[in-house]
Design a protein around this nucleic acid. Structure first.
Lengths: 153, 153
DNA sequence: TATAGAATTGACGTAAACGTAAGGGTGCAA
DNA sequence: TTGCACCCTTACGTTTACGTCAATTCTATA
């Protein structure tokens, strides 16, 4: 069964679903579209983060999957683990107000924000220490007549 | 053979070496002194970063080892890998001017500094993105009457 | 129909710096 | 002699997010 020939995603002549305009794409196109590898998409599915339809064994991603993938990638970008992302997404309920999900997300976000700030502080420390060390090394290089005062011993 | 009874590091009645005042310590004291675990010290030795003497099978760390450990810990703090630290330390030659070592150190330091700055930029990005998301989530929480506009789909 | 291009599952490999457990030895104080 | 406080080596486990085959199958097209 032909779905979307590689290279033309718009003209879908498929009669897969009762809903028109489902815009199904296979894994290759999906990967290209979002700059991830096939392995990554399969991995996310294995971890329960994605759940594409199947045509036989072939994965078919809907725009729902695309939305989820976007969220995953955003989550990864801000430093959430896949586990965190899953926890937050698992709380999604299309019928409710999603208050719980939003609260959890906010809670995790606050913690992550704190971690990020801590990390930044550590990096700033490291930058300072490293700059100092470099100054010292430069000193020693400029005074190449003091064999005793080496940096390692 | 008794070397340094635990708790008194100064009064060494040992006749280990011909050099007086060697100030040898065993692994436990070394670990405590520098806030690392025994495993860490053994690991560093296994990786060729430390080379303590032995009394039978017992490791004895000299002040040379202490200096090296300090360097290792500084290196780790500024984000060098142990491999990098080893490369730099391996170039140390007590008889020379250590120009090569210093140059390598400076070179690696510059690269590491660049990495640190890049990382900091990434973190700043993440902080911004996360802050934006959080604002959006707070919005949605405050308008708990819009079921359609959920964060996950 | 042959062939290239896409897709599948399964499963081991990778990186870094140790953690942790197992099994065993040594010395010293009560 | 018991027991504790140290010490030793060996070796597998941990974490996270995939990478990298391998062997096979499906599909479209020239």
């Amino acid at each position: 069964m032909k779905l979307v020939s590689p290279g033309e995603a718009a003209a879908n002549t498929n009669d897969m679903s009762d809903k028109a305009g489902e815009d199904l794409v296979r894994i290759g196109e999906m990967a290209k579209k979002y700059g991830v590898t096939l392995r990554t998409l399969r991995f996310y599915e294995d971890k329960g983060l994605l759940n594409p339809q199947r045509d036989g064994s072939t994965r078919l991603y809907t725009r729902r999957d695309k939305a989820r993938l976007k969220l995953i990638l955003l989550g990864r970008k801000v430093g959430f683990s896949l586990r965190d992302v899953k926890q937050m997404m698992d709380l999604y309920d299309p019928t409710g107000s999603n208050t719980k999900q939003l609260r959890l997300t906010l809670d995790k976000s606050e913690k992550q924000l704190a971690r990020l700030r801590k990390q930044r502080a550590l990096i700033d420390d490291a930058i300072n220490e490293l700059s100092n060390s470099m100054a010292a090394v430069r000193q020693m290089l400029s005074e190449r007549s003091a064999p005793q005062a080496s940096v390692a011993g």
